[in-house]
Design a protein around this nucleic acid. Structure first.
Lengths: 134, 134
DNA sequence: CTACGTGCAAATACTTTGCTGGATT
DNA sequence: AATCCAGCAAAGTATTTGCACGTAG
């Protein structure tokens, strides 16, 4: 049984092979680099579907553009407030258990636990600016 | 000592007296209802400042518009994926403790724990639609 | 031949910015 | 008089939608 259109398969493939939690634009560029031509509208439309069928997760990141994750299992993220770099954050089994309990007890549909920080790159940049601008 | 401009004070006041975690538009309407005239750009600009000084928190909600919370203490939210209704979610002290530990151990700057669901209103509407459209 | 899904471009939605003028000190 | 901040409108960015075409079944 064939589920996915060619374009949707490309998107899924790119998403499965990256850890950067890309935005639509990032996905667009990543596809281009692989010589897979695809329009942005297509990416938008397919992501909507993929999120609906829980094959892909939106990352709760409070960033200007939406960010997506090919891994829709329960796990945490850390997000740089400045550049938007997103990484998975380790999660103790205790915490996972508590979260799962919450989900089950309240029939929540999904969860996002996100830690916000300033990544090292941005920290360096910010202190440079202080030096320059006083 | 007077910290806040008149407009900023209005925004803070409205935010402190609501539980709806309003968007900029909602704030705009709420101010109007109180006969406090204020431009949207002003709301945007002041909220930026208030978030920077951690007097107000952005809610991690994956919703189209940003949503704001006058309470910036660590607590959870539940968000309806359809209408965007946001409420505080109860949080066990165990969970709070684990989250605080994470924050301290990794010097995170803030945290958002959000549960996504379909609120009862939207559930009702959605099943009506199924009846109508088959 | 039909149905579906793509890609472009236009439209919409959300947010930021430039500028002028009024208020505050 | 100088500074700060508000409000409007214009610009900018992100996302959605309409439509015509191509392709797969």
């Amino acid at each position: 049984m064939k589920h996915y259109s060619a374009q949707r398969a490309i998107i899924l493939d790119v998403l499965s092979n990256t850890k950067v939690h890309p935005s639509v634009d990032m996905l667009y560029e990543m596809c281009k680099k692989q010589n897979k031509k695809i329009g942005k509208a297509t990416i938008y439309r397919n992501l909507q579907e993929l999120v609906k069928e829980k094959r892909v997760a939106k990352v709760s990141c409070n960033f200007k553009e939406e960010r997506f994750d090919g891994d829709n299992s329960v796990h945490n993220h850390k997000v740089c407030r400045f550049c938007g770099k997103i990484e998975d954050a380790p999660c103790s089994s205790k915490m996972l258990k508590l979260i799962s309990e919450e989900i089950n007890n309240n029939s929540y549909e999904s969860v996002g636990l996100t830690f916000y920080k300033t990544c090292n790159n941005c920290k360096a940049k910010l202190s440079e600016e202080v030096v320059k601008n006083g």
